[in-house]
Structures are given as structure tokens and as C-alpha cells.
Design a protein around this nucleic acid. Structure first.
Lengths: 222, 222
DNA sequence: AAACATTTGTCCGTATGTATA
DNA sequence: ATATACATACGGACAAATGTT
């Protein structure tokens, strides 16, 4: 049996990396609430490390927009504005559209087949109301396209924006709809036809949809 | 005479911020060369601070893609591939296009007038071959649009990508052409007509042009 | 194979700066 | 206005990890 090599796990995670991942997860899933004050000494104790890796992790999270640092005053979790759906999704949509466009001439039939399977699982998750699994499958679907696009600048930006999307999902500002199922299939068909404009266009509307859904629901509630 | 208030300079720059700006500038203008090894102790001495703020600055630069950190091995300046023009500009172009689209309904005539002045200065700088000034004016022109678009997610991403563009400019991979002068005016006209599609479209082609220029020059040299 | 040299990662003490009483 | 309490920023020493001799 193939023993997981050292190469597969790019070295043991450093304290800083563990702190980063953990705190980011806590912010995304709401364990650390919006605007909550972050005491580095406290976090250090909770994670069993010193303040240094915590500080470093918080600085990275600050760059990504998950925490706000006010020098000499306080460090706090960035407030969630539910209306941020309309701020985050437009740039994400155009980048995902670009990724789809770039992926079109490069994607293999094998990858497309694999994508179809993911979309099937996605549809099943949505149907049975398992939105958390659906979200992960949705991310998997789009990440595969980004990978094929082979552009680190696009990939890293999308990765950050998608983390914010996950946070909004946990705050019930973004919900997954059955429309995505057909749109995903539409993207795959466009890939097979080498039709990059259509692939890009569908990807774009697919990512913008939650904005309309959000404001429609808002109106219904009034 | 009005003494510069404390508010204007958002607090004295921290050692970390100074280190970040300085090292980034050195990487962009080529003082720190491609793939050069970065010894934090050395940099600390050069900037008269300890290793801590240097380390923090390097980590931020790593996130932005200006340095690569290989734990336990070395930290080095990210290599410049001149072909990166074709990696960086597409995402920048779609984001600038989006910014133009979002700015269209919000921009004031006053801002448009100011933009025209900037474009005039830009054209003069290009005409007299002062490409460095031209670059700064070009950035000023597009940054104004990004500001009006009022979207921090777009703004911060564009800011990072544009820093990479500056680096490519210093490596002679990107050159400014007179085409931009008319395209800038075209964007302003589109703003005045509230024609967001045209504004976005011109912004996009304006940012993609250097790719064609780069590969054309490459062919000429062969 | 083992000890070495170099570099990064971590810890904790202290200084500095900010806001509040 | 001054003093006080608290949080962050920085410094320097130590520990761990990597690649090499």
C-alpha cells in the first residue's frame, strides 16, 4: 500500500498555519462572531501556542478582510453586512467567468466526465436539503475549472473571495438553488462544444444569481 | 499655515509597514532582483529594525506573490516571467471593466472633468517619452474609477495586481502606447452617456492591449 | 550516517502608544 | 490635564528543521 509520502503533506503545518486555518474557520462558521474582539493572548492559550504565530495569522486574515486591526486599540472580527453579497459576488462572478473562458480550450473530456459526476452528487445534495454538502460540492465543481485555467493570480483571488462566500452562506445570506444544477450542465456542454463565450456567460449568471435571490427574499419578508 | 494634522497621516507608520513598502518597492523596481535570496537578519539591519517586522512584511509580500517562502530553506524574490503579462492582465482587465461598469451610474461630472485633465497630462507624458510619469498618471486615472465603484473587494485585488503590473513595467514587459489616450477619453464619454457596457468594454480592451503589444514585439525581435 | 551550519519558526519580556477615568 | 489600564508593536534569544559536508 502506498504510504503517504512527506511530499504529499508539504511539511508539517506550522503553528502559524494551524492558527490561521483554525481562526479563519471559526470566523466563517460563526464560532467567532461578527465584531467580536480578538485577544491574541487568549487565542494563543486556546491553541496552545505563543502570541507570535497568532499575531502573524491575524495579519494574514486582516489582508483577506476577515479581521480588522486597529493599532493600539483592538483587533476584531470584521462585521458581516448581509448586503455584502452584492459586493463580493460581482468580482467573483467575472473571475469565475474568466476562468471558464480560459479553461474551455484546455479541459479534457475526462475532467468533464468527472465534473458531471460531481454535479450529480450536487443535485442529490440539494434535493435532500443537505446544503452544507451541496456547498462543498459546488466549490469542488468550480475549483476544478479554476485549476484547469492554470492562472495563480485568478486562483488565489477566487480562493479568498470564496472564503467570504462561505461565511455569508453560514450567515444565511446565500442559499443554493436548483437552478445551479442545469447551469453547471450548461457549462459542461459549452466546454464540449469549445464555446468559451457561453461557458463564461453561464458561469457569470450562475454566480450572480444569489444576489437576486437574496433581495427577493428580503422583499418577501417585508 | 496649516500644520499637517495627525489625522492626515493615519498614525506614524509602523516598522512593519515601512519594511513592507520599502521591500515591495525594491522588488518592483528591480533593486531586489528576481529570485534573489532574502535574508531577514540582513534586511533587518539594513532597515534598522529587528527581524520581527521584517518577517511580518515578508509574509504579507508572500501573500501578494512578490516573495516565495520555503520553510527551513530560503525566502526569495518571486521570479519574474515576462510572459506573466498574459497571466496578470486578464484578471485585472475583467476587474477594471467591472469597476467601470459599477462606476458609470455613480460618477459625477466633476470627477469626469478631473479625469480629463489627468488624461491630458497622461498624453503629454507619453508624447515626450516620460513613461514613468505616464504610468503614474495612468494608475491615477484608473484608480479614480475604482474609487467611485465603491467596492473594497475589487479595490484591494486590483491594487495587488497593479503592483505586479508596475514590476513588469520596470522589467520592460509592459509599455504604454498612445492608444490609451483615446481609450481613456472613450471611457469618459461612455460615463457621460451612462453607457456602462461601452465603458466596461473599452476598459477591458485597454488593459488587455499590452499582451498583444508584448507578443508582437517578441516576434519582431526574432 | 552523523554532526554541522544556516535559516526559519517560536517564545516571552519589554516598550510604546491609545483610550478612559 | 494627568494618570492609569490595557492592547499592540517590537526586540532579542532560543528551538526546530532542513540541506550539506
Amino acid at each position: 500500500m502506498p504510504i503517504p509520502k512527506k511530499f504529499s503533506t508539504p511539511a508539517r503545518l506550522s503553528a502559524k498555519e494551524r492558527a490561521f486555518s483554525q481562526i479563519q474557520e471559526w470566523i466563517i462558521d460563526g464560532t467567532l462572531q461578527s465584531e467580536e474582539k480578538l485577544n491574541d493572548a487568549e487565542l494563543a492559550q486556546a491553541l496552545g501556542v505563543s502570541r507570535t504565530p497568532i499575531r502573524e495569522a491575524l495579519q494574514l486574515l486582516s489582508v483577506q478582510g476577515f479581521v480588522e486591526m486597529h493599532p493600539g486599540v483592538a483587533t476584531q472580527v470584521t462585521p458581516v453586512n448581509k448586503e455584502d453579497v452584492s459586493k463580493i459576488l460581482p468580482p467573483l462572478a467575472v473571475l469565475q467567468a474568466l476562468a471558464a473562458e480560459l479553461a474551455t480550450p484546455a479541459i479534457s473530456q475526462q475532467t468533464i466526465d468527472s465534473q458531471r459526476n460531481i454535479n450529480t452528487e450536487f443535485s442529490q445534495a440539494v434535493e435532500r436539503g443537505d446544503f452544507y454538502s451541496a456547498l462543498k460540492l459546488d466549490e469542488q465543481f468550480h475549483n476544478a475549472i479554476v485549476e484547469v485555467a492554470q492562472n495563480p493570480y485568478i486562483a488565489s483571488t477566487i480562493s479568498t473571495l470564496q472564503a467570504h462566500v462561505r461565511r455569508l452562506f453560514f450567515h444565511k445570506s446565500i442559499i443554493l438553488t436548483t437552478d445551479s444544477i442545469e447551469e453547471h450542465e450548461g457549462i459542461l456542454k459549452a466546454f464540449e462544444c469549445q464555446d468559451k463565450e457561453t461557458a463564461a456567460s453561464i458561469a457569470r449568471t450562475n454566480w450572480l444569481r444569489p444576489i437576486d435571490v437574496f433581495y427577493s427574499r428580503l422583499q418577501e419578508q417585508q
